[in-house]
């Protein structure tokens, strides 16, 4: 039941902000991913809590998730993914002008993961910082990279999404609604000036703080520190998030297509945040995109927050599903609530 006209907007929905890319266009030149070797299957989870492979598969589409060994840092996963992205883009670390790391699971309050990476990779003097926009983080970071390149403040930006979310999960019946969903992993992209005609065309970014309590980790009113919340656990109001997610995917797709002056049929590949297969399927159906044009790899990684979009895009590129000139829609949503989408023509 695809929509042929713009979607109906709920009376309580906030307006969307869209932006046409201006200035020097930017594009993605190399992607790299890294996930911990240890795999936790649905069957493995059956021994940790009351659940079943069938239940998890039917409701989420997830079969496995990669889980870091204790002591693994978000920094180490991020750095591995970044090295691979630099190699894929044939860019030396010293050419990097800026490093932006999006993460929902930093190793600590500060220093930033990006600064540790700058030292580890050898990108002296680059502008390095982390951002927090939950699962939308990678799209926000890409948009910042695009802005830097557009305004000629940088020529090479390393954008990373990395997570060790398992530190904030509890494998118990009380928290099984989140424990079965999330996993660990990292993805990185090298963003540089685009060749003629290619690159990012439009963006849609926004947030709705009224929904702050829908996806949380630890005490929100006081904050985890004041509440002496030593190990914040990820919690979620599933049906509310489902409704918001499907709605925002549809609205963003229409808004960004309109801003870029294209129609939905012109989108060759939709790379959605991998939160739940059923969210993706419901959104794609109503947007009017067949699943052949949707990148999905949630069965392998689960929801890795900021890392899902680069992981899914990387796998689609590796499978030969993206060719030069293709129009690719990257779209996410997350805790906050936040949302973001970027439309690019593949270089």
């Amino acid at each position: 039941m695809a929509l042929t006209t713009a979607p109906r907007v709920r009376s309580d929905a906030l307006p969307l902000r869209t932006f046409k890319a201006k200035g020097r266009p930017s594009a993605i030149f190399g992607l790299g991913v890294h996930a911990p070797a240890r795999v936790l299957s649905n069957v493995d989870l059956e021994s940790l809590m009351e659940t079943s492979d069938q239940w998890i598969t039917e409701r989420t589409g997830i079969k496995r998730r990669h889980i870091a060994e204790p002591g693994t840092t978000t920094f180490s996963l991020a750095t591995e993914a970044a090295r691979k992205a630099l190699a894929a883009a044939r860019v030396k670390a010293e050419e990097v002008d800026a490093i932006i790391v999006a993460t929902s699971s930093p190793d600590g309050p500060f220093p930033s993961i990006a600064c540790r990476m700058q030292d580890e990779l050898g990108a002296p003097g680059s502008y390095a910082y982390d951002i927090l926009a939950a699962c939308t983080g990678f799209v926000y970071a890409l948009e910042q990279a695009d802005s830097m390149i557009a305004s000629e403040r940088a020529d090479t930006v390393l954008v990373v999404g990395a997570e060790v979310l398992s530190r904030m999960l509890e494998y118990s019946n009380e928290y099984r609604h989140t424990a079965v969903i999330f996993g660990d992993g990292a993805g990185a992209a090298v963003v540089r000036p685009a060749p003629a005609g290619a690159g990012f065309k439009a963006w849609c970014l926004g947030g709705d703080g009224r929904g702050y309590a829908q996806v949380t980790a630890g005490n929100v009113p006081l904050g985890a520190y004041a509440a002496k919340d030593e190990r914040p656990i990820i919690d979620m109001k599933g049906p509310d998030v489902f409704k918001f997610a499907v709605d925002i995917f549809i609205r963003q797709a229409y808004a960004i297509a309109q801003e870029a002056g294209i129609s939905i049929e012109d989108i060759d590949l939709f790379v959605p945040h991998q939160a739940n297969y059923r969210i993706i399927e419901a959104a794609a159906r109503r947007i009017g995109l067949p699943m052949e044009r949707v990148a999905v790899n949630i069965e392998e990684y689960g929801n890795t927050s900021t890392a899902t979009i680069p992981l899914a895009l990387h796998d689609a590129v590796a499978a030969g599903r993206v060719k030069s000139g293709d129009r690719v829609l990257l779209a996410g949503f997350g805790s906050g609530l936040t949302w973001g989408a970027g439309l690019l023509e593949w270089a």
């Binding site: 929509l3 599933g238 049906p239 409704k243 709605d247 419901a282």
Partner: peptide, 14 residues
């Protein structure tokens, strides 16, 4: 299940 209902209601609303 709860997600089916949310999806159905969204479709009905549309």
């Amino acid at each position: 299940d709860s997600l089916d209902l949310v999806e159905l209601i969204a479709a009905v609303e549309d």
